[in-house]
């Protein structure tokens, strides 16, 4: 049952991009069903279709003296970063790019979001998006370090930064079993970097949509799609890092990987609906004084186990 991961031909990258898009779409459909009133859940699943049609038909907007370049880069950057993240994500047994530092690649892409979300907020030259952009930076200061240390736990256990090695290292025992803290912190961070509740303060209703407040038409579509794509890819990484990737009985690896990812993605979407939004300030002390030491202890525990095993 060895989960040998092999790098596939670059041509498959096109398929990978489509897969990310499809997963984002699935997430949006689940979200639509959850949002619909009871009794109209099935119709709610079509929400992303209606939303896509609506935003494609809607006119774009620009603002007086907007910083258009930064704005558009920020807007289009979200889906781009989500797809680039997926480059090192083993989809069952296949991966587009088997970088020896795959984990660092993921981290680098996720840090790009700092700039992109801020640019999407700064660009329009309007008060609400501006405040939203800066709110995201405050959130990022809180979630990024616990996220980075949560990432190192599987890397220490596998003795490698290569995603394929990390998946292979979970043969027999998934990392989630002995790294529950790192797993929970990672899942929370996925919600945070994909701008979902409880970490949606940058897009909150109290800012009239924050970073989204001035975007319409295809710009808004890209932001929303990017957000769902980030959640989908983030769930995929949680599966690869902690839930054994594509390992599982009988079915082919890619089916297992897909099933786990979609399940985790749906769970995160359900969780986010039942949590209130957290103000960045309220998160800051909790992240630095609780989540960060807890994650460090987790990494320490993993390191001790690894060294003891020799």
């Amino acid at each position: 049952m060895s989960a040998g991961v092999e790098q596939v031909s670059p041509v498959w990258a096109v398929v990978a991009a489509i897969a990310v898009l499809a997963a984002a779409f699935a997430g949006a459909a689940v979200d639509g069903a959850l949002q619909a009133r009871p009794g109209a859940r099935r119709a709610g699943m079509l929400a992303p279709v209606a939303e896509g049609a609506r935003l494609l038909r809607q006119r774009r907007r620009t603002l007086v003296a907007a910083d258009t370049l930064l704005w558009r880069v920020g807007v289009a950057g979200l889906p781009v970063v989500a797809v680039l993240m997926a480059a090192v994500l083993p989809f069952g047994r296949w991966v587009i790019s088997d970088l020896p530092v795959g984990l660092v690649w993921f981290n680098a892409m996720d840090v790009m979001l700092w700039a992109l979300v801020w640019m999407a907020g700064w660009g329009p030259n309007a008060a609400y998006p501006l405040v939203g952009g800066y709110r995201f930076l405050a959130l990022a200061l809180a979630y990024e370090l616990p996220l980075m240390f949560a990432l190192t736990a599987p890397a220490v256990a596998a003795g490698s930064l290569r995603m394929a090695d990390i998946v292979a290292g979970q043969d027999g025992l998934w990392y989630v079993v002995w790294m529950p803290v790192a797993f929970l912190v990672f899942c929370a961070s996925v919600l945070a970097f994909s701008l979902h509740r409880p970490f949606d303060a940058p897009l909150a209703r109290d800012l009239a949509g924050g970073v989204l407040a001035e975007a319409s038409g295809v710009d808004r579509l890209l932001l929303l799609a990017g957000r769902h794509a980030l959640l989908a890819v983030g769930s995929g990484f949680a599966v690869a890092l902690f839930l054994g990737g594509g390992s599982g009985p009988l079915l082919p690896a890619w089916v297992w990987f897909l099933a786990k990812t979609l399940l985790l993605q749906s769970v995160l979407l359900v969780v986010r609906r039942h949590l209130p939004s957290v103000r960045p300030q309220a998160l800051m002390a909790a992240a630095w004084a609780v989540a960060l030491p807890a994650t460090l202890l987790q990494v320490a525990g993993v390191a001790v186990v690894v060294v003891a095993r020799g």
Partner: peptide, 19 residues
């Protein structure tokens, strides 16, 4: 490109910020 074809107008609306 698609949105240019499907949107009600090709050029973006120049608006004031929502206040």
């Amino acid at each position: 490109v698609l949105s240019r074809l499907t949107a009600v107008a090709r050029n973006p609306l120049v608006s004031r910020p929502f206040l």
